[in-house]
Computed example of a mutant assay.
Amino acid sequence: MIYFDNSATTKPFPEVLDSFVKVSTEYFGNPSSLHNFGGLAEKLLSQARAQAAKFLNVQSNEIYFTSGGTEGNNLAIKGTAFANKKLGRHLITTNIEHPSVRESIKQLEGFGFDVTEVPVDSNGRINVTTIENAIREDTILVSVMHVNNEVGTIQPIKEIGQLLKHYPKIKFHVDHVQGIGKVALNINDCHIDLCSISAHKFHGVKGTGLLFVRDGVKINPLLNGGGQEKNLRSGTENVAGAVSLAKALRMILEKQQQELGQLNLISKRLRDGLSQIEGTVVNTPEKHAAPHILNFSIPHLKSEVFVHSLEEKEIFVSTTSACSSKQKTTSSTLLAMGIQEERAGSAIRLSLSYSNTMDEVNTVLSAIKETIEELRKVMK
């Protein structure tokens, strides 16, 4: 089996699973309990928070554990909007965000908030000037993803942060779910106020994630109850999930430091190989693109048929994002980039991890060429 769908989810590291099982088995007490057994769980939770903060170069009190990217994005966007609505009701985002951002903002429009979606260029990248031009007196939040989950375009996060330094009322949220462990992001240098990550995108356990909230930034909770996570995210804490997330974060950042060069070489080989296959068009830009995502189209072939044909060869890829693939809708990201609907409707996403090899890339390229030829014979 060759797995090239790592942007949908990754295989957990064995060490991460071991830590999750160990904590779940031996330290299953409730961190809020008064007895010592609960105290041990609370200590582990605090250690995991401190470790995650260290790896992200932020403070421990700025880390809030969540169930993943969707919750983190919802909490950041809605929590900021409701907490700061007296200062304004205008939000700025882009037209290629993840559904958890788009739908959160859409819901806020129903509560009377006004939204500006800035467009992207043909490479899927925004111009910082468009953000600046969209800012109004009542703007309170800018939300921009770091790495696009469909085509891998890297947004100018540092430049946006530098711009927003001059607008202290505006909070800056970054969806870092696809970038973590592959594309470096310095939260402090980029002047980010809120940042979401999800562990299952970097070989952690599903249902675990975290939200960075800069000290002093006010947001409202979405979940009310026992007041866990400093009243921001009530509910009995997932200690095993937090511990395993911290371990996965350490391991993926080590791999980024040690193996990013090889991942870049594999990605280049994949791009070069695809460009040589007749009938394929690469949609991922050459510049400002993450090394682990490559999106291409095969005009006149249905992407779902192609995905299932590769699956028969035990090669697993995807069409758009996992959140949208079963809806069989044309990629809104590619359409926003100005790509025609026919080409956008035949898009395939290949997404890599550090465990993929050059041999696998060569096998996949041969399979792609072979599958295209097979399907075209059937179509004649």
Results as ranks from 00 to 15, higher is better:
Gly345Thr: 04
Glu132Arg: 15
Val307His: 04
Asn127Tyr: 13
Met145Gln: 09
Glu237Asp: 09
Tyr167Asn: 10
Glu159Cys: 05
Arg269Cys: 05
Lys11Ala: 11
Asn238Arg: 14
Lys182Asp: 02
Asn123Phe: 10
Gly209Lys: 07
Arg376Asp: 00
Leu260Met: 10
Gln256Pro: 00
Asp215Arg: 10
Asp175Leu: 04
Gln59Tyr: 14
Arg233Asp: 02
Ile2Asn: 10
Glu71Tyr: 09
Leu294Arg: 13
Leu301Ala: 03
Thr330Asp: 01
Phe20Cys: 01
Glu370Gly: 06
Val101Asp: 00
Ser46Tyr: 13
Leu245Ala: 01
Arg136Asn: 06
Arg250Ser: 13
Pro31Gln: 11
Cys190Ser: 15
Gly345Glu: 02
Ala81Ile: 03
Gly39Pro: 00
Thr319Tyr: 06
Gln340Phe: 14
Asp175Thr: 05
Ala41Pro: 01
Ile63Val: 14
Pro14Asp: 14
Val282Ser: 04
Leu34Asn: 12
Phe212Gln: 01
Asn220Gln: 14
Phe13Val: 01
Leu108Val: 07
Ser196Arg: 06
Phe20Val: 02
Val305Ser: 07
Ile277Thr: 03
Phe296Ile: 05
Thr130Lys: 07
Ala246Lys: 08
Phe20His: 10
Thr319Cys: 02
Ile135Gly: 04
Gln155Met: 08
Ser7Thr: 07
Val142Leu: 05
Val128Met: 03
Cys195Tyr: 05
Leu211Pro: 01
Lys201Ile: 04
Glu62Thr: 11
Ala289Trp: 09
Val118Glu: 00
Ala289Gln: 08
Val317Ile: 15
Gln59Asn: 14
Ala347Thr: 12
Glu42Arg: 15
Ser309Thr: 11
Ala50Cys: 03
Ile2His: 12
Thr66Arg: 08
Val183Ser: 08
Val142Tyr: 06
Val101Cys: 09
Lys313Asn: 08
Gly161Gln: 03
Gln178Arg: 14
Ala8Asp: 05
Ala336Ser: 14
Gln276Arg: 11
Gly279Arg: 09
Pro291Gly: 08
Asp359Gln: 14
Thr333His: 12
Lys54Cys: 06
Glu278Leu: 12
Thr371Tyr: 05
Ser67His: 15
Gly235Leu: 08
Asp215Val: 03
Leu352Phe: 13
Arg49Thr: 13
Leu163Gln: 03
Ile368Arg: 12
His288Tyr: 14
Tyr167Phe: 15
Ser7His: 06
Lys158Cys: 01
